[in-house]
Nucleic acid binder design. Structure first.
Lengths: 244, 244
DNA sequence: TTGACGGGTGTACAACGTACACCTAGGGTG
DNA sequence: CACCCTAGGTGTACGTTGTACACCCGTCAA
């Protein structure tokens, strides 16, 4: 008796759990997503989830991975501007579809492989079209808040994510300091995320291609001035959005 | 016995509570801020806080108000660009000083009077320098993510915040729909936040000064294209940040 | 047949936000 | 002076959260 509940007792899986979590967050918001509500949603006891997800943090990381996968791949054979533009707009529609995502992303500290892969591909759209590493670096910072809020902490401590699934016990942990990634990890990193590495290397030593290393303040002002200069131009020529 | 704890038992106040909360969040992060830890910090029992703060939500709103007050007022008698630029940079240093703020702002739904006042003054920097309502509208959207993340939900449902202190039971509440602000509230609103109102009115009926009403998608693309055009220019002329 | 093991269960605990009843010090009024 | 009213701090208690730990069962390899 009490065998299942209507539907046949199909086994759970990490994907099933993540999928249900995303669906639940979509309709209830992130506030309505607890291990208990999610478990009930799956017709299972709360602790069952921990066989597929190591913690709620891990669950949220997995959910982010899922929606990152929804972002369209970059267009092929188009001008950089077209490609970047459509990619960003695709990311935006994904974030619109999952309105909890912005809030969740804001709290995430671990970069999972899926997120790194997206970032890497994103950087590639510039580098592959002949952008300099220097300019690409600044452009990524400028676009960050549009892509979504990954800002300064992108390039320091790239260690955490190397495994084929989710990093095991990886956590960035305030002031650990001793987490030096070993050579094997670095090599794996270089193979899978070459563009990230190029950018990271360039900003590591300030004698490199990038003028003054990675200065948050500078990055911020770079993006800001870009906006302001554009605005100034519109204002000067009496721009208006109306067809008039 | 147990009268106070070293220091004389000074009475609490809303400001004292908020100040302690900000200080605690500054050093512990928002995760380390609970009603219990905050109470202990103040040498008081948790429930005592509720005499000065109606809920934790209210506490967070108050904390936001506190740091908004730290942002410098706009410069007088300067070009709009100088004024806006320095104001945004001031806001940025405040957010750097209180690193929990970004995360908290992302979850806030109620706009308190202090926040509205800041926004209003911000809009004024453009309007007072001769910017059109139309352009100012779009510019505010474009700068939003830089100022901080108030985005589309700025202009719909302006009701909540009218009282001299914090709005009493105001909450935006999903799909309430029946919360029509009465005339008195509107008048008060118009008196204290005239610029907000002008922008809001303009986007309310699409025959107004703003071309197509307030279309989120359009706003997003507006800001995006501003950035992209600027980037394109830099790329074309081989821009680099190095002194070389 | 057996034994290991992947995966669902049950109980339990600490920490959270906060409702509710209570007590108490201090000050305005008779 | 006696009064009591009230602003503000206290104590207890409840429901909800994440999750540790022990358990148990169904499936498959040997």
């Amino acid at each position: 008796m009490m065998a299942g509940r209507g539907t046949s007792r199909t086994r759970l899986s990490r994907n099933a759990v993540l999928g249900a979590a995303v669906a639940l967050a979509d309709e209830q918001g992130v506030g309505g997503l607890s291990m208990r509500t999610l478990a009930e949603d799956l017709g299972v006891v709360p602790m069952a989830l921990y066989k597929h997800v190591s913690s709620k943090e891990d669950l949220l990381d997995g959910m982010v991975d899922m929606i990152v996968a929804e972002i369209d791949p970059p267009l092929e054979g188009q001008a950089w501007k077209t490609t970047v533009r459509s990619r960003i707009l695709s990311a935006r529609t994904v974030l619109q579809r999952h309105r909890w995502a912005r809030q969740v992303l804001e709290t995430r500290t671990t970069r999972t492989p899926a997120v790194l892969a997206y970032t890497d591909s994103f950087i590639g759209m510039f580098l592959d079209r002949g952008f300099s590493v220097d300019l690409t670096h600044h452009v990524m910072h400028a676009l960050g808040s549009r892509m979504w809020g990954f800002t300064q902490e992108l390039f320091d401590a790239p260690g955490p994510a190397a495994g084929p699934s989710v990093a095991e016990d990886a956590r960035v942990d305030t002031a650990s300091g001793s987490a030096q990634p070993d050579a094997a990890q670095l090599a794996e990193l270089a193979r899978r995320f070459p563009n990230v590495l190029r950018i990271a290397m360039a900003s590591a030593h300030d004698d490199g291609v990038v003028g003054r290393g990675c200065d948050d303040q500078y990055e911020f002002e770079f993006a800001l001035d870009l906006l302001l200069d554009g605005i100034e131009g519109l204002h000067a020529r009496g721009w208006t959005s109306a067809r008039t």
